[in-house]
Amino acid sequence: MRSLFEWVDALPSSIALRESLNAYPTMLTIHVVSMCLFAGLIAYWDMRLVGLTLRKVPVSNIPTRLFPWALTGYGINLITGGLLLYSQPMRYYGNFYFWAKMALMLIAGINMFWFHYATYKSVQAWDQGREIPMNARLAGVVSLVLWAAVVVTGRMMAYSGLMPQWWNNLNIGA
C-alpha cells in the first residue's frame, strides 16, 4: 500500500497539483460545498427515518426526490476528495483520521446497502404512517452517527499533531 502511495506521490500530475497555488483551495472548497449538498440531504432523510422531522412526508418520497441531488453531491465529493488525495498521498498515508474516515465511509456504505436491500423493501407497509419499524430507525441513527463521524474525521485530518499515541507508535508515516 505504501509503495502505491509513494508511486502516486511521484507522478508528474500529482506534483503539478501539489505545487499549484490554486488547486488545493479550489478542490477543498468544492469538497466542502458538495459535502453540504450530500450530507445535508442525507441527514434529513436519516432524521425522517428516526422520526425527528418531515413526519408528514411519505418515506418513499425522499429517496425518489432527494437522492439524485444527494448522489450528485456525493459524486462531486468523491472526485474532489480523490483529487485531494492524489495531490498529497503521502500527507494522508500516515494520517490516522484519513484511514478512520475511509473506514467510517465504508461502514456507512454497508449500512446504506443493508438498509436498501433489507428494510426498505417493506416500505409500502410503513410509508405513510408515523410508526417507522425499529430496523429502519436503527439504520437512520447509525447513518446519522456515521456520517457525522465522517465529517468530524475529515476535519481532523488537518490536525496531524493530534493523532492517537498508539497510532504514532506504529510509525506508519515515517
Partner: peptide, 9 residues
C-alpha cells in the same frame, strides 16, 4: 451540514 440540509430542502 444541518443548516445546509434545512436550507436546501
Amino acid at each position: 451540514v444541518a443548516f445546509a440540509g434545512a436550507v436546501l430542502v
